[in-house]
Amino acid sequence: MRTKELKLVVTFHTTADAMAMEKCCKEREVPGRMIPVPRAISAGCGLAWCAPLDSEQQVRAVMDQVGLRAEAMHQCMV
């Protein structure tokens, strides 16, 4: 049995935005990694930023700092 955890999953309008998110979070040592967009969120494919739930404030701060706009922020089991 594989265990899943409730995670913060941020989706973006473009792959370029998703890559910008990864770069900015890495530079600021904000935890997380890229995953395929979970099908529960969208069947349309693409990349999402998956991070611990308690990093939401950091994630939002990074996005504010660099002017990145999320498509949506979700909490889901990953």
Binding site: R2, I35, P36, V37, P38, R39, A40, V78
Partner: peptide, 9 residues
């Protein structure tokens, strides 16, 4: 299973 999840694993 979500195909994205299997591919990610």
């Amino acid at each position: 299973c979500d195909s994205g999840e299997i591919s990610d694993i």
